[in-house]
């Protein structure tokens, strides 16, 4: 770990980078200075708290505590994904179901295949990566679905008038929304190593691991993110499209 030398003093110096963003905001009158300070403040406090919690959990090394921590991560990811749904008739539980199934199926496969072990040191960071990626996919999917129902309202209405059920009337919009949700993950996997060295791989290389060994983990990460984002987007979409209709199969979009 001798390569890792982020002292408190170097963090203070690195804070100068935040000031660059603030200067840009002030000069260009973007009005973002307050937001930047709040974001940085939150990040510091959240990370300090999480740092201590993780340290404690890793020390206790209890399976149930680890699972409880994954549930907290999934709850937070669901909360944020749900907030990104512009539909006022959204249901929080739908995001929880999508996040939980996507995360636990992916995590379960990784543990069952022996890729990772059921220890807090491995499970918690991986859960965070899966749930975080899924949160973005689900949020994008919700937004695309909402836009689809508004932009193509007439098409949905005509399909309903022809006697289609909810799913038949929304299917083309759902397909597009799922695709929108999955696209960023696919794009980032396509350019992995060429444009960005992702967090997992960078972390291992930082810690002094042989890059040839580190790529194995990155390949695993690519697989799991793809699985989680597709599962999350599909489940969220198939649950949430129903929110746009009432029980008389009338479209609730003005």
């Amino acid at each position: 770990m001798k390569n890792l030398a982020v002292s408190n003093w170097s963090l203070v110096l690195a804070f100068a980078l935040v000031l660059v963003a603030v200067i840009v905001s002030t000069k260009e009158k973007l009005g973002l200075s307050k937001d930047i300070f709040i974001a940085v403040g939150r990040a510091i406090i959240q990370l300090i708290v999480v740092g201590f919690i993780l340290k404690a959990i890793f020390k206790v090394n209890n399976v149930w505590l680890t699972i409880a921590m994954t549930m907290v991560i999934i709850f937070n990811a669901s909360w944020n994904a749900s907030k990104r749904d512009p539909n006022p008739r959204r249901h929080f539980w739908q995001s929880v179901v999508a996040e939980a199934i996507g995360t636990y199926l992916t995590l379960g496969t990784l543990i069952a295949s022996g890729t990772i072990k059921l220890t807090p040191v491995q499970v918690i960071p991986i859960t965070g990566m899966i749930a975080g990626n899924e949160m973005v996919a689900v949020g994008l999917c919700y937004k695309a679905l909402y836009e689809g129902f508004h932009d193509q309202r007439q098409q949905v209405l005509e399909k309903l008038a022809l006697g289609a059920n909810r799913q038949q009337a929304s299917h083309s919009l759902m397909r597009r929304a799922i695709k929108t949700g999955m696209q960023p993950t696919i794009d980032s996997i396509k350019t992995v190593g060429l444009v960005n060295l992702p967090g997992m791989m960078s972390g291992l290389i930082f810690a002094g691991v042989d890059p040839v060994y580190a790529i194995r983990y990155q390949i695993m990460v690519s697989f799991m993110l793809l699985s989680a984002s597709s599962l999350g987007a599909v489940i969220a979409c198939y649950l949430s499209y129903r929110n746009y209709f009432n029980d008389r199969l009338q479209l609730l979009v003005d």
Binding site: Q154, L157, E158, L160, A161, L162, G163
Partner: peptide
């Protein structure tokens, strides 16, 4: 709606 069809 399959019996009473609305045309736009």
């Amino acid at each position: 709606r399959q019996s009473v069809s609305y045309c736009y």
